[in-house]
Amino acid sequence: MSKYYEHQNRNKRGSKSKIGFYAAFAICLVAVCMAVYSTYNTVINPTAKLSTTPTDAQQVNQAVTGVTVTVPSPTISFEEPTEALPEITLPTAVSDEAAEPTTEDTTYSDDALQTMLSADLSLSYPVAGGKVVRPYSKDSVYFKTLNVWKPHLGTDFAADLGDNVLAMCGGEVTKVTDDKLFGKTVEISVNNAVCVYSGLGDIKVSQGDRVEKGDVIGSVGTVPFESDSENHIHAAVKVNGSYADPLNFIGNEE
């Protein structure tokens, strides 16, 4: 009997051991299945754990509406100068003193015919050839050397340096000067007229001498204020103190 009960007890313990093994195996299998499912679910549906993004958040690259941005317009201000601009004075080529010749004033006759009739005067050319470089003009003309505009109250006759300068009329030598603008100058007076020769080189007469028409009174030199022109002699005529065109009296036979 004792052996029988002992055998039964062994069978019961074996059955319990088998039941415990299968229960533990089942629990492990369930745990493995749950782990596999969880991993699979995470890989297949990753957005399941990223559900923290607010549903009303604006998508990237989606245009934003309902927002108005005001950009201020730039403003530029200018401050006016508090001090007056300096006055600009343009330089002149010569001084006021040099602008007007010292031996020639600006008095001239408005009526050439009246001047001619008031003078019993007949002149010849002061140099051979009689070519005119610059004519007489009571209107202002441009003088390049001085960089000024002024009347040209004489007639310029072309000649080479050293050529003889001849008396245009007979008369008395009343003045011999050396002017800074006109150069060496001789004046010969007859009745109410004065003949002026400027730009001489050598002077062969003296004040007080008497000359005849055609006499040599000097040689051709230079006229400082007309040095830009070709070589010439500057001849002027004054009748009753007023300048007149020398050409009006050349060839006017007595």
Rank of each mutant, 00 (worst) to 15 (best):
M1N: 03
S2E: 14
Y4V: 11
Y5N: 10
E6C: 02
H7W: 07
Q8T: 09
Q8V: 12
G14Y: 13
K18D: 07
I19P: 01
I19Y: 07
I19V: 13
I19T: 12
G20H: 14
A24V: 08
I27L: 06
L29K: 03
L29Q: 07
L29G: 10
A31N: 10
A31M: 12
V32I: 14
C33M: 14
V36P: 02
S38A: 12
Y40D: 10
N41H: 14
T42Q: 14
T42P: 01
I44E: 12
I44H: 10
N45Q: 08
P46H: 12
T47S: 15
K49V: 10
L50T: 08
S51G: 12
Q58P: 11
V60F: 09
N61A: 15
A63I: 08
A63H: 13
T65I: 04
P72D: 15
S73W: 03
I76C: 08
S77D: 05
S77R: 02
E79I: 07
E80I: 06
P81K: 10
E83I: 06
A84R: 15
A84P: 12
L85S: 13
P86D: 06
E87P: 04
E87C: 04
I88G: 05
S95G: 15
D96Q: 11
E100P: 01
D110E: 15
A112M: 13
Q114R: 09
M116A: 15
L117V: 11
L117Y: 12
S118A: 15
A119K: 04
D120C: 04
D120A: 13
Y125G: 00
D139T: 13
D139G: 09
V141D: 09
V141N: 09
V141K: 07
Y142T: 02
F143W: 01
K144L: 04
T145V: 15
L146V: 02
N147Q: 14
N147R: 12
V148W: 03
V148P: 00
H152G: 05
L153Y: 00
G154N: 05
T155A: 08
A158I: 01
A159G: 06
L161G: 03
D163W: 00
M168I: 05
G171V: 04
V173D: 05
T174V: 13
T174D: 09
V176K: 00
T177Y: 00
T177I: 08
L181N: 04
F182H: 09
F182G: 05
F182V: 02
K184M: 00
T185D: 03
T185I: 05
V186C: 04
I188V: 12
N191A: 14
A193D: 02
A193E: 02
C195P: 05
C195T: 11
C195V: 14
Q207L: 11
G208H: 08
V211R: 01
V211D: 01
K213R: 15
D215H: 05
D215F: 01
I217E: 00
G218H: 02
G221Y: 07
G221Q: 03
T222P: 02
S229V: 10
E230Q: 11
E230N: 03
N231L: 04
N231A: 12
N231D: 10
N231G: 03
H232F: 10
H232D: 03
H232G: 06
I233T: 03
I233Q: 00
H234V: 05
H234I: 06
A235N: 05
K238F: 06
V239Q: 13
V239L: 14
S242L: 13
Y243L: 05
Y243A: 06
A244I: 04
P246N: 04
P246T: 02
N252C: 13
E253W: 09
